[in-house]
Simulated assay, not measured.
Amino acid sequence: MRNWPLFELSITTPRLELRLPSLDDLDELGDRAAEGVHEAGYMPFLFPWSDVEPVQRARNTVQYQFRSWGEFTAASWQVEFAVVYEGQIVGTQGIMAKDFPVIREARTGSWLGQRFHGQGIGTEMRRAVLHLAFAGLGARHAVTEAFEDNHASLGVTRKLGYQEDGITVHDRQGKPVTTHRFRLPRQDWTESPGFEIHNLPKCLPLFGLET
């Protein structure tokens, strides 16, 4: 899309492609959400968007993507990549920041269709956006946060070399729950072979960065 080059931005890894979703991709992404993204009775998200009927979960997913497109500015941006594995949309991997040209800090967040858990996909898609953050956008730090009982997310974070960065207590569906914060400085990031960023230069002005 000539006037919004983010739709041409993608990241490829040995097994995955991360891209902004097309409308057809959004339908498939909604299907993944409707199928389920976590076990019943457990909530890994601060905002419980997944705690609704499958049809509404699919619609929530599509609307969230539309909001991220419409609210994107250089001062406050969010890119929600559709993750493609073996020709299927399997989840989303987000990267977002505020005042990035000055602060050079990016946050990440993701979800993966439940039937694709346990295959190392979550780790690989996080590595992909870290590659974008550090190698592509020149980030100084990447940060993330997860509930203390979200063992899968915590496992990925620790595997990738993040450092503990404190805790926060949240109200999760009426109960206090602790999240752990993590920070990955650029000097502790290890570049992975086979990870490539495509069509980034024309997108840099949208992030407030020079080409």
Rank of each mutant, 00 (worst) to 15 (best):
L29V: 08
G36N: 12
K202E: 13
W189N: 00
A106G: 12
F100Y: 10
N150C: 10
L18W: 04
D165C: 08
R19S: 10
R104D: 04
R32F: 01
P201S: 07
D51E: 15
P101M: 12
G194S: 11
G91T: 04
D51S: 07
Q88V: 05
C203N: 02
R115N: 15
S50M: 11
G30K: 00
H180P: 03
G194A: 10
D24L: 06
E39T: 10
P48L: 03
E164A: 13
G118K: 14
T13G: 06
Q114V: 07
P44R: 04
D165W: 05
W189M: 04
P48F: 01
G194R: 13
G194Q: 11
T179L: 06
L209W: 01
D51W: 01
F100V: 02
E39G: 13
Q93N: 09
A82L: 08
A40R: 15
G174T: 06
V90L: 10
S10N: 13
Y162Q: 08
F81W: 08
H180L: 12
G109M: 07
Q114K: 15
S10C: 11
R115W: 08
E80D: 14
G138I: 05
W49N: 07
W111H: 02
S192P: 11
V143M: 11
G122R: 00
T178R: 15
I11D: 00
